[in-house]
């Protein structure tokens, strides 16, 4: 359960950016998560509810794009989808493959509300 630590780190980054832009609220947070990052999306979403409570991002829509595991095979020069525990080439069976995507743990973008009415709320 390190998802809460991850959420606290997201929150800190989001708060910094919101401050830099003098935003009054964060409305959308977009993440990219791959299965090889070690972060579980459902746990992350639950932990976010706790981490974001009473913050500038409490009302933000929390969007996670789950990335597939894709590998490239240097042996047959083709790409294939793979499972986290079986990253062998789907075409020729070579195990020495290169990861193309699947280990992402990225804060992609955020959207900010800068309307001043909120400041008086």
């Amino acid at each position: 359960m390190h998802e809460l630590s991850v959420c606290q780190s997201i929150l800190s980054q989001v708060e910094t950016i919101a401050q830099q832009h003098q935003a009054t609220a964060v409305t959308l947070i977009k993440l990219k998560i791959g299965p090889l990052s070690g972060v579980e999306t459902p746990l992350l979403v639950n932990a976010w509810t706790i981490a974001s409570a009473n913050t500038i991002a409490a009302e933000a829509q929390f969007e996670v794009e789950e990335m597939p595991i894709t590998i490239h095979c240097p042996s047959c020069d083709r790409e294939s989808r793979a499972k986290a525990n079986r990253m062998v080439c789907g075409h020729c069976g070579e195990w020495r493959t290169q990861l193309v995507s699947g280990d992402e743990m990225l804060l992609q973008s955020i959207e900010l509300d800068k309307s001043t009415e909120r400041e008086n709320v």
Binding site: V6, S9, I10, S12, Q13, I17, H21, A23, T27, L28, L31, V39, M105, L106, L107, Q108, S109, I110, E111, L112, D113, K114, S115
Partner: peptide, 22 residues
């Protein structure tokens, strides 16, 4: 080059690792 969202908010591209501080 901050694009405006449909609701008039501001979209910021971040592209940072989630464990940036760590």
């Amino acid at each position: 080059k901050l694009s405006k969202t449909s609701s008039g908010g501001e979209a910021v591209e971040v592209l940072q690792g989630l464990l940036h501080e760590n």
